[in-house]
């Protein structure tokens, strides 16, 4: 809902975008696209990409979409994938054939490559091993130092405690409670 994937029935989602406040609940599709391009980043649980595109280009794409040159975007993408310990031999393969953990790392790299001021994280560490989980925690901390506001969903309490400043318990939002 926050990213605009789900339509809002009631309430508002206010976000500072390009010096103005925009309500995502009522924004036009075009405005939402602009918000996504410049303000609101998203690390999803699922990887939905064009088949046949190499992992490196999947990661670089958010940058090229904002007008960064291909070479520069690929360089940054390579650095991120290296940091996330994705074997270099996989970089030029399409992620569709990767394991869950590998796909997730591609996803995280794709979400972290830009400098969006707001980032949504949907269980970013769910299928990662301990070593990579630490890398992600570091990356989140780094974003935090850069002043990026992040909203994340975490099941993993260790990670949650390591990164979160504030907790929202969503069980109170659940429909059965509301009813």
């Amino acid at each position: 809902m926050l990213y605009g994937n789900y339509a809002v029935d009631a309430g508002s989602i206010r976000l500072a975008h390009q010096g103005a406040t925009i309500d995502l609940a009522t924004a036009t599709p075009r405005e939402i696209l602009a918000v996504r391009r410049d303000t609101l980043g998203y690390v999803s649980q699922f990887l939905r990409v064009v088949p046949r595109v190499a992992a490196l280009d999947v990661v670089a794409e958010p940058l090229t979409a904002r007008g960064v040159s291909n070479d520069e975007a690929r360089e940054k993408a390579a650095a991120l994938l290296a940091r996330l310990n994705l074997p270099e031999r996989l970089w030029h393969l399409p992620p569709a054939t990767f394991s869950g953990g590998e796909q997730q790392r591609v996803n995280i790299a794709r979400g972290f490559i830009t400098d969006h001021p707001v980032l949504l994280l949907d269980e970013p560490t769910a299928s990662l091993d301990a070593a990579n989980r630490t890398v992600v925690i570091d990356m989140i901390a780094q974003k935090k130092r850069q002043g990026v506001a992040m909203l994340g969903i975490f099941h993993d309490t260790d990670v949650r405690d390591a990164v979160a400043d504030r907790l929202i318990d969503v069980t109170s939002f659940a429909p059965r409670q509301a009813a």
């Binding site: 605009g4 994937n5 339509a7 599709p29 075009r30 939402i32 696209l33």
Partner: peptide, 30 residues
């Protein structure tokens, strides 16, 4: 449609019955 488009229009019997951001229409069809 998901891979190529930003926005999506759903047509039925000659009319547009739903129109919006592609992933919104696909993830949360109304």
């Amino acid at each position: 449609a998901r891979l190529l488009s930003h926005r999506m229009m759903v047509m039925k019997d000659g009319r547009v019955i739903e129109h919006g951001l592609t992933d919104r229409v696909l993830d949360d069809p109304r």
